[in-house]
């Protein structure tokens, strides 16, 4: 490399230094993730006890059974609304949404994902909680979460369905299949792992959501009594937010235990969803 001019040397040094900077930037981004995981797992795991899963919250101590149940009810309930609507909207966007209206729906779908969750929460508060008189309730919370995650499911389903070659649909039509049969028996069997991935990622979002639930689900120290309206319900993320502000060690322990459960669930769902996509690629 004796022939290197000083200009060429300068450029190489500049490039090498820049790559070091890039690596440093990546480390700077990776550090918070690992630190969040480390602190949540360390302080959360030490707060995990059998009582957490058998007792309800009692003031600033006790267990998290009511919150765990509430999170399951709210997230599961939101899927009941969001999955059919989201997947069917995805079918519309992919199969019929090439005209003007399809463009509008697709665009507004993306806009809806950008609406701050607290705005959705306040909308749900003034409509369902106040005007419809449902008060803080499981139904209001679940519908609010559903509004949040429908656009994700719709866009994910669209993406999966639109990747299926058109010739498969034509083959179905050539055999005399109806449109709904093509969708149900040709497109869906191929696309379901991808659609399920979208649903799982949406579930992870709903498990971690807090702000809109404060305005719709409220909070309850007791187990859910099965009433859909007029009965507030607890959830894990509330414990994180509310109990960390209390000046008691037992409250902090509960907050970190709740954070542990939420983060663990969200990570598990995320990694599982990715594995689902990977497995599908191998079998195709």
């Amino acid at each position: 490399m004796a022939s290197l001019t000083s200009r060429a040397l300068q450029r190489r040094v500049y490039s090498a230094v820049s790559w070091v900077l890039c690596t440093f930037a990546f480390a700077l981004v990776a550090f918070p993730l690992f630190d969040i995981l480390a602190i949540v797992f360390r302080r959360g795991a030490s707060a995990i006890s059998p009582g957490l899963f058998t007792q309800v919250t009692n003031g600033i101590s006790g267990g998290l059974l009511n919150a765990i149940e509430g999170t399951l009810v709210l997230s599961g309930g939101s899927l009941l609304f969001a999955v059919p609507i989201g997947v069917i909207a995805g079918i519309y966007l992919s199969e019929y949404g090439h005209g003007m209206f399809g463009k509008v729906v697709r665009f507004l779908c993306d806009v809806l994902t950008g609406v701050p969750s607290i705005v959705l929460g306040y909308f749900a508060y003034v409509t369902m909680v106040v005007e419809l008189g449902w008060q803080f309730s499981a139904l209001a919370g679940a519908i609010t979460l559903a509004i949040m995650i429908v656009p994700y499911i719709a866009r994910f389903s669209e993406l999966e369905l639109s990747q299926i070659p058109y010739s498969l649909r034509e083959a179905g039509y050539a055999l005399g299949m109806k449109e709904r049969t093509v969708i149900a028996h040709i497109l869906f069997p191929i696309a379901w792992p991808g659609i399920l991935t979208g649903i799982l990622l949406a579930l992870a979002i709903s498990v971690g959501e807090t702000a809109p639930l404060i305005y719709t689900a409220g909070w309850s120290n007791y187990m859910w009594n099965g009433h859909l309206t007029k009965e507030p319900i607890g959830y894990l993320t509330y414990v994180i937010w509310s109990f960390i502000n209390q000046p008691f060690a037992s409250a902090h322990a509960l907050a970190f235990a709740a954070a542990f459960l939420v983060v663990f669930t969200v990570l598990l769902i995320n990694v599982g969803a990715r594995l689902l996509v990977k497995r599908r690629r191998y079998f195709e």
Partner: peptide, 8 residues
């Protein structure tokens, strides 16, 4: 990093 809930 994008999937960590905001309350966490």
């Amino acid at each position: 990093l994008a999937s960590v809930p905001s309350v966490v």
